[in-house]
Nucleic acid binder design. Structure first.
Lengths: 145, 145
DNA sequence: TTGATTTTGCAAATCATTTGCAATATATGC
DNA sequence: GCATATATTGCAAATGATTTGCAAAATCAA
């Protein structure tokens, strides 16, 4: 992950943004935890370093516009995770019972070449997509929930 | 759509819920407009009948739990549309430039039989999914946005 | 129709997120 | 390394979406 951090630090510099404690801390959390986190969850782990919730939001917004993180909207709250450039493209399995979120690497949009199909048929140029799969994870299924 | 309304009215009755002016009005909007609407947009068209925004939210929440409508989260705000049982299963093409939302009938999740594949590989039982495709619609593309 | 039960309107509360502004941290040129 | 210009932060208050408490009104079942 050092690589990623260094790379992003450099990228911020190039774009005229400072490398600050807040941004570094938020990014550390995002490179450490694999599942998409809410701003408040990120804040919980960085507030001990005296970083404010507003700064977390501001950092996330900046990262989003720079395509460093992507925002996923799940169940009313926005969640953030490293963008595809820094983590392989993937989707999520969200358990309706326990809320656990896992990744799926298989992307049916790519597999079906849907982007090209849509472009040909409708003229719409797909640039990105969000796919979230909901259901019951193995252990909740076992528990009969 | 009369059919749909009748059917849902019946369904509410069976589950011990009343058929009220507010619920009927919200449903009428949803069966009339094809794209997913925000609560406030629905309210705008039913407030002339003296229906309160809270009631719109309450109706939507009830419909959602009864699987009559589904909630789609796009760009921070929740939007609602008739559930798959009342409209063919579909996904959305959301234009990043003008905000226009169109349907796509092709479902790559079904095409790739992803649900079974995931179940076999991970034990996770997929029950539903959300797929939203973002990009530029034909006319925004033409306008060079 | 009537009484029991649900639902509604309204206003206030809540939750996630954003913003204004003065104080502080980071970056740049010497 | 230091001073200074610029960008960023913390804090508190503002905002926008959604939810809730409660008394009044609508719906339901007999």
């Amino acid at each position: 992950m050092r690589q990623t951090m260094q790379h992003i630090k450099h990228l911020l510099g190039e774009q005229g943004h400072s490398w600050t404690r807040a941004r570094s801390a938020v990014l550390t959390v995002l490179t450490t935890v694999p599942s998409p986190l809410r701003a408040e969850e990120i804040h919980r782990t960085v507030r001990s370093s005296g970083i404010n919730l507003s700064s977390v939001y501001r950092a996330l917004r900046l990262f989003e516009t720079l395509n460093i993180v992507r925002r996923v909207e799940l169940g009313g709250a926005a969640r953030y995770e490293l963008a595809d450039d820094y983590r392989h493209h993937h989707h999520h399995l969200v358990c309706d019972a326990c809320g656990r979120i896992d990744d799926v690497a298989t992307c049916p949009v790519e597999a079906a070449d849907l982007t090209r199909q849509i472009r040909k048929r409708t003229g719409f140029a797909v640039r990105s997509h969000v796919l979230e799969l909901f259901g019951l994870c193995r252990s909740c299924r076992r528990d009969g929930r």
